[in-house]
Design a protein around this nucleic acid. Sequence first.
DNA 1: CGGTAATGTTACAGACCGGTCACACCCTCG
DNA 2: CGAGGGTGTGACCGGTCTGTAACATTACCG
Lengths: 197, 197
Amino acid sequence: MDNLTVERVRPRDRIVEKARDLFHKYGIRGVGVDTITEAAGTNKMTLYRHFDSKDDLIIEYLRSVACDMNAVWDQLEAAYPGDQIAQLHAWVRGAAECVMDDERGCDIANAAIELTEDCHPARQVIREIKTKMRDRMITLCREAGIEQPERLTDALALLIEGARVNRRSIGPDGPSARLVEIAEDVIESYRKGGQKR
Amino acid sequence: MDNLTVERVRPRDRIVEKARDLFHKYGIRGVGVDTITEAAGTNKMTLYRHFDSKDDLIIEYLRSVACDMNAVWDQLEAAYPGDQIAQLHAWVRGAAECVMDDERGCDIANAAIELTEDCHPARQVIREIKTKMRDRMITLCREAGIEQPERLTDALALLIEGARVNRRSIGPDGPSARLVEIAEDVIESYRKGGQKR
DNA sequence: CGGTAATGTTACAGACCGGTCACACCCTCG
DNA sequence: CGAGGGTGTGACCGGTCTGTAACATTACCG
């Protein structure tokens, strides 16, 4: 019974799942592999049979997070088919909710800050993930009829990323509380063709 | 000669100075006290005679960084006396330069991300520093005649903070490269009274 | 000069870390 | 039943970390 319901999840997947929880809460450098395996109800050997190293697990963790973020985009696309402006607004509202509900910012950005070695294998993965997300958002803005899709994308990216990290510094009552209004101002501003020059 | 020029700097100050360098480059959790004392040309015992713990040194490090940031504001005030709009633009340009020149973002924000314990003594210091900076900027915006000084302050804070963290994820060619144009758009937008509603 | 405070040196404690080894176990499938 | 692959167990290695103790040395200042 037990091994048909709960335990039926492969140790590898349980490890990734718990790694996501713990890395998110305590940071990558703040969680040891023992803690992860214990939370996943397994052991260190099993972890090292599925992953070459902790760095390897970190990469898998980041990919898993990115996968979920892409799924959110897909949901938005399905919820407002053809209405890219609505998708944009929903994305902003969703991001703001995420900022308010979760004090620990973006896993990808946090990892980029925590992994200080320039040649760390996860750094390139981070860049790929972020670049893909940006490209997807640029396409969305373009399809929404925005005149300068790259500029609006970058503006929203900076605002949202800033809100997530700022909330961790000042807390929930700081600038991040105003994210929605500010972002909607910016969207509205660029819908009208954006400022000249 | 040697002990009158170079060594004349107190060990305590040398420790803080090197801690700033190393924490900035490799993160707080990525640098041990031995590394700091060695770089400072002293030893661990001297460090622990001046600081109760590493956490205590971290707090001193953050205060030191905040002090420098306030000095930059003072410089701007002296460079453009009475012209708050010019100070705002200079601040934005300075921040953008800082983002382009230094791939490792804001020390304060990085520390907030790295120190995951909610009750960590440095967390409150971080909040104080960020709050003071925000208040100062709000005052500046108000004196500049901005109609919604809090809103412009928060918008710029999010943009700049976002740029610094984003540069670490995507690199120098991402959204952070557009920080100046976007921020100036926003300033211009709020100078004209800001969007209604 | 002498005494006092600051600093340097060495060694150590205790904890945690990533990673490996040898071996026992158990489930599945033929 | 039997074999083999995935999994669990406990010990262990070498390294790093914060923090401390006891002692030697230096610098300053009356």
